[in-house]
Nucleic acid binder design. Structure first.
Lengths: 333, 333
DNA sequence: ACCGCGGAAGAGAGCGCTCTCAGGCGCATC
DNA sequence: GATGCGCCTGAGAGCGCTCTCTTCCGCGGT
């Protein structure tokens, strides 16, 4: 292509030593005479030597990079979701701190998932982190069979034996619904998330558990975690049960959509209808009225996931971590 | 580490041919007898052979991956900015279509920039795309000197000779301000973006150009592209010139902040004060009132950048692409 | 004076792949 | 029938690095 970069060999020649010695210096071994080390370092500096990573990983069998796979179909606009960015950012900087490189891969289509699979089995990465998986995704199962460590952000579908870090979706939803109950609400509806995602499933379970304990009946509409679907679900619920006086939405984006639908329908929040969300994204506090919601520790969750993927399976304390959630009470409920 | 993956050698042995022939089959060369090809393909399948990418790139000197570097300091919450996600997503899928892999790197700190530099010069990637650069960043200059092609999303700082794809920030700002003028506004203030970013600079230039042509005086406060800074700048402007009747904000996030500050100050939008933004993020249409803003083609810009980094410098038509913007008139102005 | 020992440097064998070059075979040409 | 040409296939030389094994050297012990 263009002028060849200097190699170990060149550095060795310049410093008047052998390749092996230069390698030792580069890799920080201590068994090198100080004077020789200095000479080598000087040669490296003069030549502007940088190790060739392909050659290195050919022999060491590791690449120092870890894949972060986001399985979101392109049709679904996840660019909305601020959680995604935050996870990416956290993972990336945590990995960096560990001397690893994050490789972000999108796996929205069947085809893209196959690409990811062959990328991983081609030895490009030392580990895989999975984000935003859906029930039918074949990728997690494929990865769990490979020799590369794979972990999941959020509980994977039931049949998939993947180590993971999740937050307490069931418990969080329960907290929110109990808060609505405690405020004296009688007809509490739910806008559930997509039921092919465990976060969607678990938050609905939490809602049902809380209601069951109180003997109220449940009213459910299903959305897909987008604002628009939240608004549509809200209209549906209003039609099904005009007397409802509270709504629990499985995420904030849908809750905000619900807020808009309620306003359009002439209901006051929280006077007529109380609304609670889940996630505590930034927009929740700017909503009108500010949204009562369930906060979960995104950064901690991402950090724990990185730690997990970096720890060899044999040395892990646990293959399953669940982090607590916290109810944030604002004006909407 | 664990059970060794099959190599070319193993496939060759199984198919009863030489390594070279298997390599030809794997790389899709046509000069192989159909019968032999089938035998090789069968052997590959039976063994579950996947080429070792490190070995391959050691000899081919290319890695089929391209870095996307985001130079945003960690202190600045870019997780807010939906444009970021959209660019990442577009770049990633465009690259995928070209058989390349995107490697996302964060370069928020001095240290991180050095990491990126050595990663790139270590031969990990075949090209680099830079996003969200600030004036003082040393990285672009370092990269422009390397043998790996580098391109920038948005015009880089003046002194940096980097090919780039930008949108017409100056023209877009002019459009917005001319719209305010045409609506009869007399005192048009600006909330400028960070002046160490060319998008911030250029949008301010557009504002000034439009005003100069009309003989109005300019009133400027500077923000940093965040919502909070927009609100703060708005309060400042109101204090400086209580009689202002229009504001051009250099991005939508700041415009939304300004909207909130105006409401708190008891000004009606657009009756008392007209507000125009820039970017046309989704939140702009949900703002209260819906925001008049300047739309620029993010997807096209990202796509053009990918095309540019994939095209060898010698074959490029141009090292500088500028895409047009479009005024979107809603209720705020 | 000899031996042995430990620490530090060098020699050299790969890692798994690509690619050039040579070799072999069949067929058309003279 | 000898020659040449084209087309496939195989042999083998690296790509740049790591790592084991060997060698070398200096030094203390007997």
């Amino acid at each position: 292509m263009d002028t060849r970069r200097p190699t170990l060999e060149a550095v060795a020649a310049r410093a008047g030593v052998s390749r092996a010695t230069v390698s030792r210096v580069v890799n920080g071994q201590t068994t090198v005479d100080a004077q020789i080390r200095d000479a080598v370092l000087r040669a490296i500096d003069e030549l502007g030597y940088v190790p060739n990573s392909a050659a290195r990983s050919l022999v060491t069998r590791q690449t120092d990079s870890i894949a972060l796979v986001v399985s979101e179909p392109p049709t679904r606009v996840f660019s909305d979701d601020p959680l995604f960015s935050l996870v990416v950012r956290t993972v990336s900087s945590e990995l960096e701190a560990a001397g690893k490189q994050a490789v972000l891969m999108l796996a929205g289509s069947q085809q893209a998932q196959e690409r990811v699979e062959s990328y991983v089995s081609g030895g490009h990465v030392d580990g895989v982190m999975l984000l935003s998986m859906h029930g039918a995704d074949p990728l997690p199962i494929a990865l769990s069979r490979m020799s590369v460590p794979a972990v999941s952000y959020g509980r994977p579908a039931a049949a998939v034996p993947l180590p993971h870090v999740d937050n307490d979706n069931v418990g969080g939803a329960e907290q929110a619904v109990r808060h609505l109950l405690a405020a004296g609400r009688r007809r509490i509806a739910a806008i559930a998330g997509p039921q092919d995602m465990t976060a969607g499933q678990d938050r609905l379970i939490g809602y049902r558990d809380a209601l069951r304990a109180s003997d109220r009946r449940s009213i459910v509409a299903v959305g897909d975690f987008t604002r628009a679907s939240g608004a549509a679900a809200m209209r549906q619920l209003l039609e099904d049960d005009p007397a409802l006086d509270a709504v629990f939405a499985a995420n904030d984006l849908m809750a905000i959509g619900a807020l808009q639908a309620l306003r359009k329908a002439g209901r006051r929040v929280p006077d007529d209808v109380a609304v609670a969300g889940f996630d505590d994204i930034e927009a929740a506090s700017f909503a009108d009225p500010p949204l009562t919601t369930v906060r979960h520790p995104v950064v901690e969750q991402a950090t724990a996931m990185v730690r997990m993927v970096l720890t060899p399976p044999a040395e892990r304390e646990s293959d399953r971590v669940v982090l607590p959630t916290e109810l944030v009470v604002r004006d909407s409920a």
